[in-house]
């Protein structure tokens, strides 16, 4: 069964149609790239998948492994969507601890490991408000991956990263695929798509076309 299936999804906001009769299937063990111009609806697509917004019509089906009875949002998903996801006055580690405490499946050691895996120093006393843009992006990535989710939805994960960090994150995502996990990411960089994505979808004219 597909991990995520979109069937005849239509979504409009205040008279502007973003998606009309969109169909797509995302399987396990693959990396999917989504491209589209600014404002085309890439973040909205992720929010639809997560259940943060409801389609006007059509259905989003998530593999029941990730949707137990009492859940509105899928389990074992790691996401980066347009919100920052951190409290600026706290350190990176404290921010991640706050989030990790909710599910309580990982402890400090795993958080530190995840931070190191994207090139962040876990024990710095620096508050997040003093982080550079790239560090904030790494923090967002860490919150998405730290609980070892089975599905990753990453909205522009390479933004603001330096060359080395881009390489690091590319390897990380590739390792997720190798472990049979699903990654869906958006990017404006063709190289990311060419190197990483098994399939590429383009959002064009209110539809989602598979281009590769």
């Amino acid at each position: 069964m597909a991990v995520i299936q979109l069937e005849k999804i239509t979504k409009s906001f205040k008279g502007t149609t973003l998606f009309e009769n969109v169909n797509a299937t995302f399987d396990a063990g693959k990396i999917y790239g989504i491209v589209g111009h600014n404002g085309s609806g890439k973040s909205v697509l992720f929010k639809l998948i997560c259940g943060f917004i409801v389609p006007d019509s059509g259905t989003v089906t998530i593999d029941p492994t990730y949707m137990s009875k009492n859940r509105t949002f899928p389990e074992n998903f790691g996401v980066i969507i347009d919100r920052p996801g951190y409290l600026p006055q706290k350190t990176g580690l404290d921010n991640l601890r706050d989030l990790a405490r909710i599910r309580a499946v990982i402890g400090d050691d795993e958080i530190r490991t995840a931070m190191k895996s994207v090139g962040l120093a876990p024990d710095t006393k620096q508050a997040v408000r003093n982080y550079s843009l790239g560090m904030k992006q790494k923090l967002a990535l860490t919150q998405a991956i730290m609980e070892e989710p089975q599905v990753l939805l990453l909205d522009e994960p390479f933004n603001a990263l330096d060359v080395d960090s881009v390489e690091l994150v590319r390897n990380l995502l590739a390792s997720y695929r190798d472990k049979g996990r699903t990654v869906i990411f958006t990017s404006h960089n063709r190289e990311d798509m060419d190197l990483l994505a098994d399939h590429v979808f383009r959002i064009r004219a209110n539809s989602l076309e598979q281009t590769a």
């Binding site: 509105t72 949002f73 996401v79």
Partner: peptide
């Protein structure tokens, strides 16, 4: 404000449902 502006998606996703 912190919940509303910064983290709601990430927190809600981990809780599993808005009610929870």
């Amino acid at each position: 404000e912190n919940e509303l502006k910064a983290r709601i998606y990430y927190v809600a996703l981990r809780h599993g449902s808005p009610t929870r």
